[in-house]
Structure formats: C-alpha cells, structure tokens
C-alpha cells in the first residue's frame, strides 16, 4: 500500500455519513469505495452481516454499519456506498449512507470524546474532530472489527447452545451452563 507522506501533526480521513452524522476513518485503513452489489446471504450469522460479495475474486463480508450501531434501517439508494477497509489483514465492506470527502485534520482539532455524544458504544471511537462548525466522529476500525468478530462468535455460540438445549436433553443443557 502506498502511504501518503504524512504532514506533521495532521491525519487524513475518509469521511462518510451515517444517519445524519459524519464519521471519519484513517485513509490508510480504507482500500477502496465501491457501490453496493448483490450479496450472498450467510446463514446463521448475526443480522448486521449482510452477506458476502465477490470483490475481484476475493470473497469479503459486507457489514451493515447502521444495523451494527443499532440505528434506524434505511433502504440503499443512489448515494449508498460500501467502504472496503483492510484492517489487521482482514478485508471487510462497510455499508454507509454516503461518502462525502477526504480531508486533512490537524491533530489539535481532535478532541477526546464527551461521554454522551452518540448512541454508539464509546469503545471504538477515537475522538471527535472539529472542522469549522462540523463535528466528525473518528472511528477506530480495528476496534470495530475485533468487536464485530466478538459479537459474531457470541451469536454463533448462542445458537449452538440453543440447539444443544433443544435437542440434547437435560444432560447437555447442564453441560452448556457449566461452561
């Protein structure tokens, strides 16, 4: 990956919109931005995983960020985009309402997060960037991804546990509980 020469004390961000708020991710983590295409559903996955797509021969999962952040659902339209991010050697597509621009933000313009700014769990927020009157929420994609993985596993384990409870009788049930 070609990295832009870093200017002292600034970060370059890809800015996208999600339910009337602006979010920014480090440009180094974004591989490309594509239009949504037909996904193949993966059974047994949590609802925020829309499915998989074929990106030039590579199969990547598509994650609905609105669903993940428990925001109101929205049908995809002409402005809907998929941000293809590569984080810790994993490639995923994130569905966002629209992508607006790439901008540079001085590090001084980034504030730590006030505790009650959004609905989203504070863990994967790096801070808030101020630009004129705009507020840009900075996402830590690495954290978003590890969190996704965690909740996916939780969901899978839950279904597995449910299955053993429903089919396996009392013995397996207690075993599952003991775990």
């Amino acid at each position: 990956m070609i990295q832009e020469k870093k200017q002292e004390g600034t970060s370059q961000l890809v800015v996208f919109n999600l339910a009337n708020e602006e979010y920014g991710v480090a440009i180094g983590q974004v591989q490309e931005i594509i239009r949504p295409q037909g996904t193949t559903r993966i059974p047994g996955m949590p609802s925020f995983i829309e499915g998989v797509i074929n990106l030039r021969g590579k199969i990547i999962p598509i994650i609905d960020l609105r669903e993940r952040f428990s925001l109101v659902k929205k049908e995809s339209d002409a402005r809907t985009r998929v941000v293809v991010a590569e984080v810790s050697s994993q490639t995923v597509g994130l569905v966002v309402d629209s992508v607006s621009e790439v901008l540079r933000l001085a590090n001084e313009a980034i504030d730590p997060l006030p505790p009650t700014i959004t609905d989203i769990d504070g863990e994967y927020l790096k801070g808030v960037g101020k630009l004129d009157r705009r507020l840009i929420i900075l996402l830590d994609l690495e954290k978003v991804l590890t969190d996704l993985e965690k909740s996916t596993l939780e969901k899978i384990n839950k279904t597995l546990a449910e299955e053993t409870t429903s089919s396996g009788g009392a013995k397996k049930e207690t075993a599952a509980k003991a775990e």
Partner: peptide, 25 residues
C-alpha cells in the same frame, strides 16, 4: 475459497466459490 476472519466459524458452510457470472455461492 475459504472464508476467513469473522466468517470463519460459519455453521454448515465449508467455503465459498464464485460462479461464471460473478455470483458468490
């Protein structure tokens, strides 16, 4: 093609493939 990352533990699925028309199966 194997499914990696967050799709690793998908139940009942061993992998995926891409058909001639680009669809993932």
């Amino acid at each position: 093609k194997t499914l990696g990352g967050i799709l690793k533990r998908t139940k009942g699925i061993s992998g995926a493939t891409i058909l001639g028309d680009g669809r993932v199966v």
